[in-house]
Amino acid sequence: MNNQTPLLTYCLRLGDNALIQSYRLSEWCSNGPILEEDLALTNFALDMTGRADLLLAYAATLEGKGQTSDSLAYRRPEKEYLNCLIHELPDEDFAFTMVRLMLTSAYDMLLYSALEKSPNENLAAIAAKAIKETRYHLAHAAGWVERLGDGTAESNSRTMQALTMLWPFTGEMFETDSAEQQLAADGIIPNITALKEPWMEKAAQVLKSATLEIPALKTWQTGGRTGRHTENLGHILCEMQYLQRAYPDATW
């Protein structure tokens, strides 16, 4: 961990975000409220798997120790995963999934739009692909947040509850460290601090039309970016890594 170059760490963070998002979305497979939504959510999960694959494959190349996207995805111990905590929280209900997808897609839109301009061709190409997918995820999720928030008393209260649970985890998405700041100063990656305000604007716009209040907060949850996770990640990895742990190098 400590020997990682800043760019490698950065790619693992983005890759792990996509990987864990994919896992949570894939849990809706066969459990969607209607068939159409089931398909949509599994489509999104596959988009995220593709993104994780590209980012982790690039991370493996940067590391140069013979790892692959698969070995990074399925064989690392828990503390080496660097995803933000917001992605690993278990889905409480459909409203929770949609609020989270709206908040994180709005973030991904800004992040990948900026990253597309990176002089690093690998990152720019991955970002260009991610933007198209994310634009759709955001439209889909924002539409549902508006419908549910501005829907019935029941759907409004559930959506508000989801927002209240998720909001403390949004701060971590904008955290940075000196290594990342150096990459940003060199123009390789976006300055994430500068994206907070446009993100807040977008989130506030959707939440307003959903008649939801942004929770007032003084404390934020943090830890995932440095490998300190909630208990939920362990449970995810138990299931996600099972096959590769039980049958290493299994293929089909």
Partner: peptide, 18 residues
């Protein structure tokens, strides 16, 4: 199935053009 035309377009996209 969809509640409005935008959702119908999105669901159609996800169901038939994925």
């Amino acid at each position: 199935h969809a509640s409005d035309r935008n959702m119908a377009l999105q669901n159609a996209r996800d169901t038939y053009t994925r």
